Amino acid sequence: MRRVLILRPEPGAGRTAQAMARLGLEAVVHPLFAPQALEWKAPLAGNFDALLMTSAHAARLAGPALAAYRGLPAYAVGSATATALQAQGFDRVVAGDGDASAIAAQIATDGHRAVLHLAGTTVAPMETGQLHVTRIAVYSMTSLPPDPALLCDAVPGTVLLVHSPRAGERLAAQVPMAARAGLHIVAISPTALAACGAGWASGTAPAQPRDDDMLALVVRLCEGSGL
């Protein structure tokens, strides 16, 4: 059985682990970061005609001020982000299955221009086109101390799931070059894959930054190796 190390924060790590278990794979969770809410000043909802969320963490950690924007059409990157928004009382949520640039294009197509983007302190590049985007950080990702168990669990043949460029950088800092030759990387994007550095047994990323597509690559890797 191929072992998979999940490096993303909770609660996403738990969802990925459950999906791994359904595929008959052994999943071990080793979060490299933990989300932390930030204080933020909420602008007037009337200044915007759409709300954008590119992370479920933003929906969960924005706090009571988020309720002021329930009257706006909301756009989310991914089903998990959409579900988190709906849990906060938003009943008009458009979920995109591509990246932030794809959902920005959808917002523009729907005729909106002034967009409030509640996000983390670091965000993936996004092509905004004709949109006027006001981005406010409502959470940050705090680095967790290095866990020696990560190297112990990363036995040869292990697949490591990397869900962000920052996670790739942290992983590269914690796994020495000499320990990489038997380990495989499946990253959420080419940028996240590049951040992992060199020396791994293999590295790949899906065409679209989706968790399900990452899992499909893991399955293909296992089938190709006969494990």
Rank of each mutant, 00 (worst) to 15 (best):
D212R: 11
G203H: 10
G203L: 02
R180N: 07
D211Y: 06
A205V: 02
H184C: 07
D212Y: 08
P209R: 01
A192K: 07
A207H: 11
G197A: 05
M214P: 13
A205F: 00
E169N: 13
Q208R: 14
P190E: 10
A187G: 04
T191L: 15
A207N: 13
I185E: 13
A201N: 02
T191W: 01
L193V: 00
G168Y: 07
S202P: 10
D212I: 10
S202I: 01
A172D: 11
L215H: 10
R220F: 05
P206T: 07
H184R: 14
A178N: 12
A178I: 13
G197T: 05
L217P: 08
A173H: 10
A173M: 06
A201C: 11
L193P: 09
A195Q: 03
V175S: 12
L193G: 03
P209E: 05
L217H: 01
A216G: 09
G199S: 04
A179H: 13
S202N: 01
M214T: 05
P190C: 01
M214Q: 06
A167W: 03
M214A: 00
R170G: 04
P206C: 01
R180G: 00
A167D: 06
L193W: 06
A216L: 07
G199T: 03
A195T: 05
I188P: 12
A167T: 00
A194I: 03
A181L: 10
R170D: 11
L217K: 02
V186C: 03
R220A: 15
M177N: 06
I188M: 00
A194T: 15
A173C: 10
D213W: 02
A216V: 11
P209C: 05
R220L: 11
R180Y: 03
I188G: 01
A216I: 09
G182W: 11
T191S: 13
Q174Y: 06
A194N: 08
I185Q: 11
D212E: 14
S202W: 00
A192S: 04
A207Q: 14
V186R: 08
T191V: 15
R220P: 11
T204K: 14
A173Y: 00
S189A: 05
L215S: 06
A205C: 01
A173G: 13
I185S: 08
A172R: 13
A181S: 11
Q174M: 05
L183Q: 11
G197K: 09
S189M: 00
D212N: 13
A172M: 08
T191Q: 14
P176D: 08
Q174S: 10
L193H: 12
P176A: 02
T191E: 15
E169Y: 12
A172K: 12
W200K: 08
M177T: 12
G203M: 12
A216Q: 15
M177P: 07
A207F: 05
M177F: 15
A181I: 13
P206Q: 02
